[in-house]
Design a protein around this nucleic acid. Structure first.
Lengths: 91, 91
DNA sequence: TAAGATTTGTGCGTATGTATT
DNA sequence: TAATACATACGCACAAATCTT
């Protein structure tokens, strides 16, 4: 549960490493649609980075259509049976 | 609402071009005391520059007494276009 | 109903590394 | 070398919506 390995000296910036890590989890089905990305706070603790960094990583996933964020609620994994173009309403 | 023209080849560096632009708006009354300079993020998008560049521009306005910045709040236009001596506390 | 906690949104302060001129 | 700009990251504070108790 604690601190994934983030290499601050690697050419890949931390936020991309995190995005890649989360993307991997998503592809491996380790993140189920409905409660994927833990809260930003949890990710901060897990990767040992700043919140901004986590948010940058999540922005990448969002841009890739892997997740969608509901303001003041959380970020969820998209069902991705389909394309990946929309926001996927969550009621 | 999008991308003001910034000439990266002009003798005037971008941050001064931006400062001049904002100063012009201020003089034209397009920036009312209380909510002048949009957020740094908005300016970043508007001018298509890095945040640091925007901050440099705002620093110029601040030095000229045109605006004052409240930490973690925002940057506001000073009430008077007069002198330019104080920081004008905003509580 | 009212707190209080949780979570995301937003905004600024600051530092570092790299690239360009 | 210095000035300028960009990318990235860390920190801190507060707002607002939501969820919990």
């Amino acid at each position: 549960m604690a601190a994934r390995e983030i290499d601050h000296r690697a050419p890949e910036p931390p936020f991309r490493q995190i995005a890649a890590d989360l993307t991997g989890e998503s592809e491996r089905g380790e993140l189920s649609p409905g409660r994927p990305v833990p809260s930003e706070k949890e990710l901060v603790e897990r990767y040992g980075v700043a919140r901004n960094t986590v948010r940058s990583a999540l922005a990448v996933l969002r841009e890739n259509g892997l997740v969608y964020t509901v303001p003041n609620r959380g970020t969820y994994v998209c069902d991705r049976n389909e394309s990946a173009g929309d926001g996927q309403s969550k009621e």
